[in-house]
Design a protein around this nucleic acid. Structure first.
Length: 891
RNA sequence: GGGCGCGUAGCUCAGUUGGUUAGAGCGCCUGCUUCACACGCAGGAGGUCACAGGUUCGAGUCCUGUCGCGCCCACCA
C-alpha cells in the first residue's frame, strides 16, 4: 500500500497503457445497447515522430471519450492511423535515398512492396506511441488505409461520382511541382512573399513606329507568349486592337487583343498572354482561341518550343532572356517588385503552372448540401466562428484536382484504350474498352490525392459500401476533434463525401482546437527545430502532467503555448495528488484502517461521527464542494471547455481537498483510529476526486484507484469503467459552504496577523474573537479546527472590541480578531492599517458617489442598489473600527 | 485585396449573457525542513484591462475609429 515519496510516472504508466489495450475495456460494439458516442480523429503525421500538436488532440479526444464512457455511453473512436499518399511517399523516398536507391529504377512493384513494408513497420510504432500517450483507442476497430475495404470504398466512390458526372477528366492549368513531378491542388500551394522584379519589356508593333511596353514578373515565359492584351476601353491603345506585334527573341508575330485581363491601372496597361503558363492567360487564351505554347517542361527545364533556350533550367533561362533583351535594348526598366510566389507545400519548390490533363471533382454540386448541413445546424462548429471560415471557402470553392503523379496511393480506376482513346471507368478491372471493345487498354498510372481517400474515412472505416451494423450504429459519429489547418483539406471534404455517399453528415460537431506553439509563440515545425517530442516530455514529466499542461492552455480559439514551466507545474500537481494519496495510505496503516473503497453509489451526504446526529462541518462542506466540482466539470466538458475543466479540477483537488479538508482531517485522524465515519467520508471524497480527474489524468488516477480498490472484486476492473461523478441538487449544502467560508476567513485573518508579527509558526498565540454574530458561535463550535489551522488559542467574546485592545487586530464586518502581543509589537500593524483605511476610503467614496446619482437609483435594478448600500455601510463600519485602532496606537 | 482573430499582473493566459474589491499558473518578496508533499506550507507585492471616442445608471465585456501583432483565403501581370 505504501507509495514512493515522489511521483514516478515511469513506474506505472507503461503498465496501465498496456493493460487498457489488452483488457479491451474500451471496446465498442454495434450490438451493445445504450447511447452511442463515436468520433473520428485525424491521422497522426506519419513522416516523423508524433507531433505535440497531435498529443493535444489525443488528450482532448481521450479525455472526451473516457468521460463519455464513464457516463455510460458506448464509445467508438475511429483512429486515423494512416492515410495514403503524401506522408508515406516522403517517408519511403527518404528511406530509399538512405539506401541509395532510385525509385524510377526500382520499378513500381518493388517500390510498392517497400512502401507496404514501411507502412507495416510504421503503423506499429504509431500505435505504440498513441498507447503510451494514453490513447484509449479501440484497437479492435482500427483500419489502416492498407485495408482492402478502403480501397474498395475509394473505387466505389470514384465510379459513382464519375457516373453522376461529378468527376471529369480535362485539360486544365494545374499547379505543377517540378521536383515532386506531380500536380498539386490549390490547397497544396503555399504563397510566400518573395522579393522579385517587374521587368518592363518592349514589344515592337508591326507596321507602326511604336512599341508596347509590357510589365512581367516572369520574363522567361515570354517565349511562350501568343498575344498581347489591352483593356477594351483603354483609350491609350484603342487604335491597336487587331494589330500585331513582334515577339522579341522568338521573332514570332502575335496578335494584340482587347481583353479585360489587362488592368489599365496596373503598370503600362498592356499584358502579355502566355496561355500555357498562367491561369489567367489560360482563360484569356480560351476566350480568344489562342495557341498554347509550352516552353517550360515538367522538370522545370525549357522545352524545344523555347528555341535557343531549350534545355536550360527555368531560372537560368530567365537570366538569359533578360540579358538578351537588354542587349537588344528592349528592356525599358526593371523595378523591384515583391510577389507572392506559389510554392509546393511539401518541398518549397516554386510551383509551375502547367497545362495538362488531370482528373477533377466538380465541387459545386457537392458543396451545396455541405453548406446546407451547417446552415441547418446538422453540423456545428466549436468555436462557432469557424462556421464563417467554412462558408467563405465553400461558397468560393473551385474544382478539385484529384490526380497525382505519385507512385503510392489509390490508383485511378480509369483504363485508356490504345485504339479509340476512350477512358473506361469501372468497379472491376475491365478486360476490354467499353467503347470499341479493344483489349489494348491500360490503367491510368496516376493515383488519387491522399485527401480523396481521407474524405471517406468516417464511413469507409465502418464497412461502407456494405450496409453494416456498425454503419447503422455509429454513423454519423458524434464528434470530430481537429486543428483548423486541415479544415478545408479534410473536414470540408469529409462533409461533402459523407453527404454524397453515406447520405448523411459524417459527424454532428466539429471541435477545432488551437495550435500548439513554443515559448516564443512560434508554430512548431520540424524545419525550425523547435518541435517538442511528446515521448521525450512524457518521459520527463509524466504523461498525465503533459496532458494536464496541454489542457490548461487549451482554451478554444486560442493558441496553446507549451513551456517547460507549465509542464513542471503540472507535474507538481500530479505529485500533490500522489502525496495526498500517500498521506491517506500511510495513515490508514497507522490507524489500522482496512483498505476501503466507497460503495458504487456514492453517498450524497456525509456520515455523522458515531453517536452524533449531524455530520461534521468539514464533511458537509467538502461533499457540497465535490458536488459542485462534478457539476462544473461535466458542464465544461459538455461544452469542450477543456481548460475550464482542468483548472477547476486543479482548484478543487489541491486547494479545497488538500489545503483545507485534509488539513482538518489530520486533526480527526490524530484523535481516533479504525475505519470510522471520518475515514469513510474522506475516502469517499478522495475516490470521487480520482474519478473526476480520471479523464484528464488517466494513469495516475488508475494507479491510485487500483490501490484503493485492491481486493475488491465486486468493483469495476478499471476506474475507466466507474461512473463519472455527476451533480445532484440534493447534495448541495449552502449553509455548510457559507459557514466554512467564514471559518476560512477567520483562519486566514489569524495567519495574516501572525505574518505581520513575523511570529514563529510553531508558537501558539493567544487570540480573542470579538463578534456579536454568527462568527462567535462558529468559532466556539469549530474551536478545534480554528486553533489547529491558525496555531492560536482562542477566546470568544460576544461584544465589540475595545478601543485599545492590546495586540494586533484584524477587522471584518463579521468579526474582529485580536492577537495578544506586547504593545511594541502591535506597532507592526500601523502601516497595514493605514493602507487598509486608504483602500476603504476609496471604495466608500466610489459607492457614495454612485448612490448619490439619482439616475443610478431610478434605473439600476433594486438588488444592485441594495447590495451597494449594504457594502457602503460595511465600508463605513470598517473604517470607523480601523480608525479607532489606529488612534489607539498613536500615543 | 477579402476574411478571421489578438492586445488584461514581469511572463503565459482565463474572464460565459455588461453589475461586489478583474482571476489562475509561473516568476518575484517574507517566513518556515510542521512526522503526505520544498514538485511543499503560510503570508505578501504587482494591473489607468493597447489608445481615443461613443452607448449605458454602470463597460475588461457592446459600438466606432486609431495604433501594434498574428493567421487564413485570393489569378491582378
Amino acid at each position: 500500500m505504501s507509495l514512493a515519496k515522489v511521483y514516478e510516472p515511469g513506474r506505472f504508466e507503461p503498465r496501465w497503457a498496456q493493460w487498457w489495450v489488452e483488457s479491451g475495456i474500451f471496446q465498442a460494439s454495434a450490438e451493445a445497447p445504450g447511447p452511442v458516442f463515436s468520433l473520428v480523429i485525424p491521422p497522426p503525421n506519419v513522416t516523423g515522430s508524433l507531433h505535440i500538436g497531435h498529443m493535444l488532440e489525443h488528450t482532448e479526444i481521450d479525455m472526451t471519450i473516457r468521460w463519455r464512457r464513464m457516463q455510460g455511453a458506448n464509445t467508438l473512436w475511429l483512429p486515423g492511423t494512416d492515410h495514403a499518399g503524401i506522408a508515406t511517399q516522403m517517408l519511403v523516398e527518404r528511406a530509399l535515398a538512405e539506401e541509395g536507391l532510385d525509385r524510377r529504377r526500382l520499378g513500381r512493384q518493388a517500390f510498392e512492396q517497400r512502401v507496404w513494408a514501411w507502412k507495416e513497420r510504421y503503423g506499429d510504432t504509431i500505435k505504440r506511441q498513441m498507447i503510451r500517450l494514453g490513447a484509449s483507442c479501440d484497437w479492435s476497430r482500427e483500419r489502416f488505409t492498407l485495408d482492402p475495404g478502403l480501397s474498395r470504398a475509394v473505387r466505389e466512390v470514384f465510379v459513382r461520382l464519375y457516373e453522376k458526372g461529378l468527376i471529369y477528366r480535362g485539360e486544365y492549368m494545374v499547379n505543377w511541382c517540378p521536383r515532386c513531378q506531380t500536380a498539386l491542388s490549390d490547397l497544396e500551394v503555399v504563397h510566400d512573399e518573395t522579393p522579385g522584379n517587374l521587368w518592363y519589356i518592349r514589344y515592337p508593333v508591326l507596321g507602326a513606329e511604336r512599341s508596347l511596353v509590357v510589365a512581367t514578373t516572369r520574363p522567361e515565359t515570354m517565349l511562350g507568349d501568343t498575344a498581347l492584351a489591352v483593356h477594351p476601353r483603354d483609350e491609350r491603345y484603342r487604335d491597336l486592337h487587331g494589330r500585331r506585334a513582334l515577339l522579341p527573341l522568338m521573332e514570332r508575330e502575335i496578335p494584340i487583343i482587347a481583353d479585360e485581363l489587362a488592368d489599365p491601372e496596373f503598370a503600362t496597361g498592356v499584358v502579355k498572354v502566355t496561355p500555357a503558363h498562367d491561369p489567367n492567360d489560360f482563360e484569356a487564351g480560351r476566350r480568344h482561341d489562342l495557341p498554347k505554347i509550352q516552353v517550360i517542361g515538367e522538370t522545370g527545364v525549357m522545352t524545344a518550343q523555347a528555341g535557343p533556350y531549350a534545355g536550360l533550367d527555368r531560372f537560368e533561362a530567365r537570366r538569359r532572356v533578360v540579358a538578351d533583351l537588354d542587349r537588344l535594348g528592349l528592356i525599358e526598366k526593371i523595378e523591384p517588385y515583391p510577389l507572392k510566389l506559389g510554392k509546393c507545400q511539401r518541398c518549397k519548390t516554386p510551383v509551375e503552372p502547367l497545362v495538362s490533363i488531370q482528373w477533377f471533382v466538380r465541387t459545386k454540386p457537392l458543396a451545396e448540401p455541405a453548406i446546407r448541413a451547417v446552415e441547418e445546424g446538422r453540423i456545428r462548429f466549436v468555436p462557432e466562428n469557424w462556421t464563417k471560415t467554412y462558408y467563405e471557402w465553400m461558397y468560393n470553392i473551385r474544382d478539385w484536382c484529384i490526380s497525382r503523379q505519385l507512385w503510392w496511393g489509390h490508383r485511378i480506376p480509369a483504363f485508356y484504350c490504345a485504339d479509340c482513346g476512350h477512358a473506361t471507368v469501372a468497379r472491376q478491372d475491365p478486360q476490354a474498352c467499353a467503347a470499341c471493345g479493344s483489349a489494348r487498354i491500360e490503367q491510368d498510372p496516376d493515383v488519387l490525392d491522399t485527401w480523396f481517400s481521407s474524405a471517406l474515412w468516417p464511413f469507409s472505416t465502418l464497412g461502407w459500401p456494405e450496409d453494416t451494423a456498425d454503419l447503422h450504429k455509429f454513423y454519423p459519429t458524434s464528434l470530430l476533434i481537429t486543428g483548423f489547418d486541415i479544415l478545408f483539406f479534410w473536414v470540408a471534404r469529409m462533409i461533402m463525401m459523407g453527404l454524397e455517399c453515406a447520405g448523411e453528415v459524417p459527424f454532428r460537431e466539429v471541435y477545432i482546437h488551437g495550435l500548439v506553439r513554443d515559448a516564443e509563440r512560434q508554430k512548431m515545425s520540424k524545419t525550425r527545430g523547435n518541435v517538442i517530442d511528446p515521448l521525450e516530455v512524457t518521459e520527463k514529466y509524466g504523461t498525465d502532467a503533459v496532458r494536464m499542461s496541454l489542457l490548461l492552455g487549451a482554451a478554444p480559439g486560442t493558441d496553446i503555448v507549451l513551456t517547460e514551466e507549465r509542464m513542471l507545474s503540472a507535474r507538481a500537481f500530479a505529485n500533490k495528488i500522489w502525496n495526498a494519496a500517500r498521506f491517506l495510505f500511510l495513515n490508514m496503516e497507522r490507524s489500522a484502517v482496512e483498505p476501503w473503497l466507497p460503495p458504487e453509489g456514492v453517498p450524497r451526504r456525509p456520515e455523522p461521527p458515531a453517536g452524533r446526529n449531524e455530520a461534521r462541518l468539514e464533511d458537509r462542506w467538502m461533499f457540497s464542494r465535490l458536488n459542485r466540482a462534478a457539476e462544473a466539470a461535466n458542464r465544461a466538458l459538455q461544452r469542450y471547455r477543456y481548460h475550464e475543466a482542468a483548472q477547476l479540477l486543479w482548484q478543487f483537488f489541491w486547494h479545497e481537498f488538500c489545503d483545507w479538508y485534509v488539513e482538518i482531517k489530520k486533526l480527526r485522524f490524530s484523535q481516533n483510529s479504525g475505519l470510522n465515519a471520518d475515514w469513510r467520508n474522506t475516502l469517499t471524497v478522495f475516490e470521487a476526486g480520482l474519478r473526476l480527474l480520471h479523464p484528464a489524468m488517466p494513469f495516475l488516477t488508475e494507479e491510485l484507484w487500483q490501490r484503493l480498490a485492491s481486493g475488491r472484486s465486486e468493483r469495476p476492473r478499471s476506474i475507466a469503467l466507474a461512473r463519472y461523478p455527476d451533480y445532484d441538487a440534493a447534495a448541495e449544502d449552502p449553509a455548510a459552504e457559507s459557514r466554512m467560508a467564514l471559518l476560512e476567513e477567520i483562519v486566514v485573518a489569524a495567519r495574516n496577523l501572525r505574518s505581520v508579527l513575523q511570529a514563529d509558526p510553531r508558537q501558539t498565540l493567544e487570540a480573542v474573537l470579538y463578534s456579536v454574530g454568527e462568527a462567535a458561535e462558529l468559532a466556539e463550535a469549530q474551536r478545534d479546527i480554528l486553533e489547529r489551522l491558525a496555531a492560536v488559542r482562542i477566546e470568544v467574546r460576544r461584544e465589540a472590541p475595545p478601543p485599545a485592545p492590546g495586540g494586533v487586530l484584524h477587522s471584518t464586518p463579521e468579526f474582529d480578531l485580536l492577537l495578544r502581543v506586547p504593545r511594541a509589537r502591535s506597532e507592526a500593524q500601523r502601516g497595514r492599517l493605514e493602507k487598509e483605511i486608504e483602500r476603504l476610503e476609496k471604495l466608500a467614496a466610489g459607492a457614495r458617489r454612485q448612490l448619490s446619482n439619482p439616475e443610478f437609483l431610478s434605473r439600476a435594478p433594486e438588488p444592485v442598489v441594495a447590495s451597494l448600500r449594504e457594502k457602503l455601510s460595511d465600508y463605513e463600519a470598517q473604517l470607523a473600527k480601523h480608525r479607532e485602532v489606529l488612534a489607539a496606537l498613536t500615543p
